[in-house]
């Protein structure tokens, strides 16, 4: 797809530039919507950059932890059902760490500024090496 200009990143940056230009001319409600739209564009940009890598990593971790095969969605669903049924009560710390790692992945895409420094640093080093 790189033969197509502008690239998807440039398209998103262009839309963001428009929003940035007009946001201060809007009334308060539209301004809030525009700020939310800019936030969603940021999320989209980060997900395009690292989403596939994170998904593949999570799939490997889930397969290893549960011993099951299937799509990421299926394994997440099974994991949720197993937690609810109490099947991981005796492995609370292990399942907790697995879920926390995946939540940290999601926050690194949605709101990386909200991560504590040790999680932010770990994410940056993982993404640099991928």
């Amino acid at each position: 797809m790189s033969r197509n200009w502008p690239t998807v990143d440039e398209i998103m940056a262009t839309v963001d530039e428009l929003l940035e230009t007009i946001v201060d001319r809007l009334d308060e409600r539209d301004r809030y919507d525009a700020l939310c739209a800019r936030y969603l564009l940021d999320v989209g940009r980060r997900e395009l950059a690292v989403g596939k890598v994170l998904d593949a990593q999570e799939l490997r971790e889930l397969q290893s932890f549960t011993g099951e095969s299937g799509s990421l969605e299926e394994l997440h669903k099974n994991l949720g059902q197993s937690i609810r049924a109490g099947r991981y009560d005796e492995q609370w710390q292990q399942v907790f760490e697995l879920v926390l790692a995946h939540v940290v992945n999601n926050v690194s895409v949605s709101r990386p500024d909200q991560l504590e420094p040790h999680h932010r640093k770990a994410k940056e080093s993982t993404q640099d090496s991928s």
Binding site: D33, C36, A37, L100, V103, V104, N106, V107, Q114
Partner: peptide, 22 residues
């Protein structure tokens, strides 16, 4: 649009939840 943003905010609350539990 704000409700779409709420969806992506869920993981931030989950992070607070897990950090509180830990």
């Amino acid at each position: 649009i704000p409700f779409a943003a709420c969806g992506r905010n869920t993981c931030v609350i989950e992070y607070d939840l897990l950090m509180t539990l830990s």
